[in-house]
Design a protein around this nucleic acid. Structure first.
Lengths: 197, 197
DNA sequence: GTCTATACCTGGATAGAC
DNA sequence: GTCTATCCAGGTATAGAC
């Protein structure tokens, strides 16, 4: 149960390789080489490849959850928190240009593989979706909070995909600016719920 | 050179399998089984797997090019043409929910594989990008035509990715409606170029 | 906990008969 | 143009010594 140092290295290496090269294409030998252990030793820590995937997804969820927590733990307004989310694209722009979004590309691959880890990967999307929904609710957007969350999630995904396809263009920065402008407009509007009822 | 019936069946089967399961994970045996020929016969038509990929991408480009052509060959306004593009998401919504966008997911996979077919796959994006740019130019948006094209391409990509992650929700339809509303606003605006210079 | 050795399978690719 | 037979590399996974 205790997370050994080796186990931790395996998971973090697998995380990186799954992101940069893809899950299916990454072999035990690749991970073992990166960690610096033998292939045989591997099976002491993980019985199957799917177990490693589970551990990688759990690691990503924990990591993102802590990150999202930091973005609301001070005296930030909900709008500032959402802005922090939008700026992930800028923060990680180098990685995104070369490998896309770690959440979206993993899910896409598992979807095609019809892999049992699919729901777990969707959980990563859910994490962001629920967090964003709460921020919009705090802005008073009780009625369309979820729709707004899905919308900005989709915009981020699309920006990441095209930034991956056109890595040498300043497209990502342009798109971030537009998303922040969209956020301004949303935050300035009245709560649609009160208007409609 | 002449496209034999068998060759055609190989390419169309590979096209479908690459889309539904992914390029790397699809084996010669899979394609051969779907076509109904032996693995050996395969090599009469294609020397390597990469050659099949090239043929699949060429097929997709030809197919989309013809489709885009049909959307401008009548008396449609540029706005109507762009609306046709946006509605691909609805037209293909079943496939998109189960396998994502054929353009975006193929590119993402090849990017991670660092595959030589990457530029060819980007060509598919270019096809849509240039076509959309022309439509916005026809609307008088000479200055920001390319930015508008990239923006709507990204929105489509993001919508496809999230529809794939949440296939049971009516998200895709909502997003299409918002994109059409965006198009209305763009078409009604004055040409930014004239205002700025 | 870590290693080597190895079993077993599937993948891409080739040779040669029909 | 299509087939069977076969080679070889690399993948997952196991056994058992240290």
């Amino acid at each position: 149960m205790a997370a050994s140092a080796t186990r931790e290295k395996i998971v973090s290496s697998a995380d990186q390789l799954f992101y940069e090269r893809g899950f299916e294409v990454t072999s035990f030998a690749d991970v073992a080489e990166m960690v610096g252990i033998s292939r045989g030793n591997f099976y002491y820590h993980f019985k199957t490849k799917d177990e490693i995937l589970d551990a990688v997804i759990a690691r990503r969820i924990k990591d993102r959850d802590e990150m999202l927590g930091r973005w609301i733990d001070g005296d930030q307004t909900p709008k500032q928190s959402v802005a922090s989310f939008i700026r992930i694209l800028e923060m990680n722009n180098k990685k995104i240009r070369s490998s896309g979004c770690p959440v979206g590309t993993l899910f896409s691959e598992l979807a095609k593989l019809n892999h049992p880890g699919r729901p777990a990967a969707r959980g990563l999307f859910d994490l962001f979706r629920v967090w964003l929904r709460r921020r919009f609710e705090e802005m008073g957007r009780h009625r369309d909070a979820d729709a707004l969350a899905m919308h900005i999630l989709a915009r981020s995904q699309g920006a990441a995909t095209l930034a991956n396809a056109y890595p040498d263009e300043p497209f990502l920065e342009t798109e971030v600016a537009q998303m922040l402008a969209w956020l301004d407009a949303v935050a300035d509007q009245q709560d649609q719920t009160q208007q409609d009822t």
